[in-house]
Nucleic acid binder design. Structure first.
Length: 496
RNA sequence: GGUCCUGUGGCCGAGUGGCUAGGCAAAGCUCUGCAAAAGCUUCUACACCAGUUCGAAUCUGGUCGGGACCUCCA
């Protein structure tokens, strides 16, 4: 079954074919580490994580490159203006690398919480100034870049005369030329649609590098072009990022790379939609962002409780990556319960003893299970329909629970089908969707202690001493541990 | 203003013209010392108006609403 992906460039689903068979190169626009990541930032990284995981599942050797934007016009947020005395103290001074390191670390920590596989290469913009300068010089040499007062701009009008500038973002070049905006350095540009390749640094800019045109810093778009070219080549398979990057970022990347490498960079452009709050995009300008640390702690006016990173991942997986998701505490709560139920069915399935070579008695049920399982790959092949994958897994959950409860008799389903079910849950839930148990209970000492308590409670119950049995259960519950009495008389426990 | 996307049951959300996605919530039942969990059952919606079609949530046109981008933006 071929994988189909929606290509933003052609605005339709296309069959994915790799440039080099068996290999896939994927570049994803990474975070700008001048501040803390918020919920909206989590979406692309989770989206491209399951895309990466799925490509691996389909047998590709994937080179996954995601940059760290650590260069540009940076200011530390919330920093109070220093007085002249403290400004002189060396340790009080804002050290750019310190700022960037702080938020890079925080970003990595958050990605770990979300169970995102780290990219194979995570290049930083500051580590690739030379490559960017080379690229800018090449663009100038080709006649598409010009220098004004130490800044270098890309000549969009000239490019658009012979190239399709605006195709990716559905922009019409004449409209762009008409837009009137008050922007820094606007008067230096030959044309309003032009964008900066290199910006001359004013004295107060904390990050600056020497260049043929004086001290400055790279334009926003050039880093991705330079690093993608360096690690994936002039032409690679997938370029991804948020929809809000379509214009001007990705449109400009195409223009730069095309001039420099004489080839448009990516074959498939994949863009995830936004996370909104009350229908509004989560972002700085709307002042409605919820930081990831706030999500995890519940410490935010819009949150009624803390949310586990896996709940957030599950929440994102429940809708298609190209649809907007409206955030609400209620929706997250629903996801939390749903994920718990699905995961518990998976735990049941894992413990299910499966024999060998026993055929099915209930052929219809057996067939239904096989069909639901086989559809999983179809859904993922159809532009990564994670929501549909989850829907099928939810349809399988009651079947699993019924097998355990005995509502479905032993032998109704063939052992082959049970094995298929077991391996498929593992592959889709863990390997592809990247979910994991939020609380790993693999502590054998704790398990032993709880088994002891379960035994004591069982003895009390046998003597109809319900006061004692309820005390054990209630006290454990107040500690966040829930006991469940099973049909066969045993009890199991899990963290609430 | 321009370009594009979108409007689904109490809520969240899939939906490729015909075959009630799924989740959460709610109600009833089964199981249980009681719980919890689980299972079964119930709740058949597609903004509005026209059109195309044997048949439209799905296609076309219009009306109204929401949003994204056009500026840093995931």
């Amino acid at each position: 079954m071929p994988l189909k992906v929606y290509n933003s460039y052609s605005r339709q689903k296309e069959i994915f074919t790799a440039i080099t068979p068996g290999h896939a190169g994927m570049y994803v626009c990474g975070p700008t580490v001048s501040g803390e990541s918020h919920l909206g930032h989590a979406r692309p990284y989770i989206t491209f994580d399951f895309i990466y995981r799925y490509l691996v599942f389909k047998g590709y050797k994937v080179r996954y490159v995601r940059n760290i934007t650590d260069a540009g016009h940076f200011e530390e947020e919330g920093r109070v203006a220093e007085d002249k005395v403290t400004k002189k103290a060396l340790l009080e001074k804002l050290e750019p690398m310190e700022l960037v390191q702080k938020y890079t670390n925080l970003f990595h920590w958050a990605m770990l919480q979300f169970n995102c596989i780290e990219p194979g290469i995570e290049p930083t913009a500051t580590g690739h100034i030379v490559e960017q300068l080379n690229m800018i010089e090449k663009i100038i040499a080709e006649g598409y870049g010009y220098e004004v007062n130490g800044s270098v701009y890309f000549d969009v009008k000239k490019y658009a005369a012979t190239h399709d500038y605006g195709k990716l973002s559905g922009r019409i070049i004449d409209d762009l030329l008409e837009t009137t905006r008050e922007l820094d350095g606007q008067e230096e540009k030959r044309d309003k649609a032009d964008f900066a390749l290199w910006k001359s640094a004013a004295p107060e800019h904390i990050m600056r590098w020497k260049s043929p045109w004086g001290d400055g810093y790279p334009g926003w778009h050039i880093e991705c072009s330079a690093m993608a070219t360096k690690y994936l080549g002039a032409r690679f398979d997938i370029h991804g990022g948020g929809m809000d990057l379509l214009f001007p970022h990705h449109e400009s990347e195409i223009a730069q790379s095309t001039i420099c490498n004489h080839h448009s960079p990516a074959r498939y452009w994949i863009h995830n939609n936004m996370i909104t709050v009350n229908g509004r995009k989560m972002g700085k300008s709307y002042n409605n962002q919820i930081k990831l640390t706030e999500m995890f702690s519940g410490n935010h006016p819009l949150l009624t409780q803390p949310f586990d990173p896996m709940t957030i991942r599950f929440f994102i997986l429940q809708s298609h990556y190209r649809s907007p998701i409206d955030f609400s505490s209620e929706a997250l709560q629903a996801s939390e319960k749903a994920m718990k139920r699905l995961w518990e069915a998976y735990e049941v399935l894992k413990k299910l003893a499966i024999g060998n070579g026993v055929p099915a008695i209930d052929m219809e049920l057996d067939k239904k299970i096989v069909q639901l399982v086989n559809e999983l790959e179809e859904f993922m092949d159809d532009d990564f329909s994670t929501a549909k994958v989850l829907a099928n897994l939810f349809e399988l959950a009651p079947i699993i629970n019924s097998i355990k409860d005995g509502h479905i008799p032993t032998g109704a389903v063939s052992t082959d089908t049970l094995q298929l079910l077991k391996s498929s849950f593992k592959i889709y839930l863990e390997d592809i969707l990247g979910l994991k148990s939020s609380t790993a209970n693999d502590n054998s000492a704790l398990d032993g202690v709880l088994q002891l308590l379960i035994d004591i409670r069982k003895e009390a119950k046998a003597k109809k001493d319900y006061a004692t049995s309820d005390k054990v259960r209630n006290q454990l519950l107040s500690l966040g541990i829930a006991l469940k009495d099973e049909k066969d008389g045993s009890s199991t426990w899990n963290f609430e």
